[in-house]
Design a binder for these strands. Structure first.
Length: 302
DNA sequence: ACAATATCCTGCGAGC
DNA sequence: TGCTCGCAGGATATTG
């Protein structure tokens, strides 16, 4: 489930590999990715353009293209990018070895021959010059892929996002104001991209556990000392997770196909039934707005 | 202003 | 063995 650390890991990995490359072709078996355009319109937008930069905005990836265009990708839940040269990556290579113009050709990786089964679900491929390819593996087909003029994309609702928790703007004062001006449940607030951008289910559970805050607490009822701890833990945990290449409890892989290593440092996420490392209480799962929240009822009181 | 629910999808594991 | 069912959750739309 790509959240800020996973998206940041992806962006950093991609920067090293495909900046300066030119998009020569596109293959997909799921044109629904291109929300507001047809496959042909999408191809017209990206083919021939050079990738001049790669940036992260919240959980979105922005490929800055030549001719003042931007390719925006949101990996949603199961998406991850893989980059390879055909010599290095079986399965994907075969596609390149075949004729990539052939839309009907099915990547061999989808037959499960690749080493890592989680890299199996390749639905979209960008063919670059230099014999490289950028592939999107996305089991559940939730990803969003949009190409458009720079101004149009930057001003679109997709990028109407709150403060980035790893930016300088995320000061204690700013955070305190965000919490005190609403009475939304803290767990929901942390995951609201229009308020703070980048935190999802995994890291919201983790930061609340560290700060000993019950996930259902209205944000304006949290005492200042806990707000301070929460603010610091958001920064600490996200930085640490970025450093370790994110969390791969399931699908996520970096552009080399490598798993993130933050999973071994998780304290509550997916630990239902286990003992709390801090107080020995039982980690419990509740539903908040249809989403699972894990916490320790003994040391995370309202 | 806030909360809940359905929707989009598919693999996986549990239970029968 | 093979079926059904619930679960996973990022974001948005809709309804309360």
């Amino acid at each position: 489930m790509p959240e800020l650390p996973e998206v940041e890991t992806t962006v950093r990995g991609l920067r090293n590999k495909i900046i300066g490359r030119k998009i020569k072709g596109v293959w997909t078996d799921w044109p629904k990715y291109f929300k507001n355009s047809s496959k042909e319109e999408f191809k017209d937008c990206v083919i021939g353009e050079k990738i001049e930069g790669i940036e992260r905005k919240g959980k979105n990836i922005l490929f800055i293209l030549s001719k003042e265009k931007i390719l925006l990708v949101h990996m949603k839940m199961t998406g991850h990018f893989l980059v390879g040269k055909w010599e290095e990556r079986k399965g994907v290579d075969k596609v390149y070895n075949k004729k990539w113009e052939d839309e009907k050709w099915i990547p061999e990786s989808r037959t499960g021959k690749m080493m890592d089964p989680k890299n199996r679900f390749i639905r979209l491929i960008f063919y670059l010059n230099n014999n490289q390819m950028l592939a999107l593996s996305d089991m559940r087909r939730f990803a969003k892929v949009i190409c458009g003029a720079k101004e149009e994309i930057l001003n679109s609702r997709d990028l109407d996002l709150g403060v980035d928790p790893l930016s300088k703007d995320f000061s204690f004062e700013v955070f305190k104001n965000i919490l005190s001006n609403r009475r939304k449940r803290i767990k929901t607030l942390l995951m609201d991209q229009k308020i703070i951008s980048g935190i999802g289910n995994i890291y919201s559970d983790e930061v609340l556990w560290r700060a000993k805050i019950h996930p259902l607490t209205p944000s304006n009822e949290i005492k200042e000392d806990k707000v301070r701890v929460l603010h610091q833990e958001i920064i600490n945990i996200l930085r640490r997770a970025v450093k370790l290449g994110g969390t791969s409890t399931d699908d996520f892989r970096d552009p080399n196909g490598i798993k993130g290593r933050y999973g071994r440092e998780l304290d509550v996420y997916q630990k239902d039934g286990e003992k709390c490392k801090r107080c020995g209480g039982e980690i419990t799962r509740i539903k908040i707005g249809g989403r699972s929240a894990r916490f320790c009822p003994k040391c995370q009181k309202k």
